[in-house]
Amino acid sequence: MASNITTSAPPPPPSMSVGAQVGIAILSLALVLGLPGNLFVVWSVFCRVKKRSVTCLLVLNLALADATVLLGAPLFLRYLAGGRGWEFGSAACKLVHYLSSVNMYVSIYLICLMSMDRWLAVTRPFVSQRMRTKQSLLALLLAVWVLAFVLSLPMPFYRSNLSKTLPNNLTLSFCIPYHWNSVAHRVFQYLFETIMGCVVPFSLINTCYSSVFCRLQSAKFQRRAQGSRLILLIIGAFALFWLPYHIVNIIEVVGLLQDSPTVIAAALRGRPNVTAFAYFSSAVNPILYVFAGSSHIRQAGLGFMGKLFDGTNSESRSNSTFSRSVRSSRSGSSPDEGTVLQALSTKLGKSFKGKQKSSSVAGKEDDEP
């Protein structure tokens, strides 16, 4: 006897938009490159670096922050590609966005620490030598992480998992911004993020490096430390990937304050893609380290990252050399250019290869009465 029971298939998911496709491509690339890359940096620091310097610990924390936020990428990929909305509940919705916000603040304020470290090393070498200890750094790192967790507190309050009925009568949940229909709350969130995550830290970074460059130019140095160049690349990469996000924040705030639906709609259209683009910043730093340590790859193989960071062990000695050079310059003698440049190097990239003979001669001259 034939059965007359019929089964109704669920309605098909909505077609994927171009914005979702772009977001999937960016997030997939960030996950494939960034998660293994940052975990490799963490492994190199713990297993290949014998003595972890101040700079090495800064890089370790940056890699840990990036790796942590990339762990949430599969959830976002499922959200964009599945066509079934947010399937992981309200708690996960708030948590992954909270961790993304923490990553933004940790990254930018760690970069601020790097910039302030360069500024002290160049402008206040004696103060830098006294303060540049692991104990002081651990206290500063703890302060950065606590600050990031505190500054990110608004994010879970302004993110919610809301249900929406689509035209095909399919009801889905979406992890979206939620401000209780309040313009003031929207303006506060986006202004707060941009001021504390962009304006304040980049003002500090620009002030530090402007002072450093003026000091170097006044000293008539012809060449710059390679470690400082790498830090500038890290700063530039962060600005490149996060600046569009903050621009969209400003556009939306302007639209809200002017009550312009057109401007608000433009910001809402651009926000998903710039958010995914900012997410990619977590995958960039390991790529920069690979380029910086490329000269060690043939010799050390997978241990090249350890070789790269081993150079930072001479930071204290370099600062001491810099202090002697400054003291000799104050007494009337001219410091050797190679020695001073070696002292200015962050040692995060390849250490500056000054003239060793000149450096040793300069050291002997400093010891003479």
Rank of each mutant, 00 (worst) to 15 (best):
A9R: 12
T6I: 15
N273I: 15
P74L: 01
F277T: 04
K347W: 04
R324Y: 09
S115E: 00
I234W: 02
F277Y: 13
G23D: 09
S320C: 08
Y190E: 12
V122P: 10
A265D: 00
K220D: 02
I26T: 09
L80Y: 14
L308V: 11
S3Q: 08
M116D: 11
Q258D: 11
L110A: 04
E368L: 08
S323Q: 13
S358F: 01
C93P: 04
F188N: 01
P154R: 08
P11Q: 10
D259T: 12
T165L: 01
A184F: 10
A267L: 06
H179D: 03
F126N: 13
P36V: 15
L162T: 12
R52M: 00
S152D: 07
L75D: 00
T123C: 15
Y279L: 13
L39C: 11
R52S: 05
S316W: 12
L142W: 03
Q222D: 11
A276V: 05
G85F: 04
F192V: 01
Y105S: 03
V187M: 03
E368M: 05
T133M: 01
A25R: 05
S323I: 14
L243Q: 01
W43P: 11
R130T: 13
V122I: 14
T171F: 04
V127I: 12
A20P: 02
P201Q: 02
S294D: 08
N169D: 13
T312F: 04
W86Y: 02
G306L: 00
I234T: 08
G197I: 01
N169E: 09
W145M: 01
K50G: 06
L60D: 02
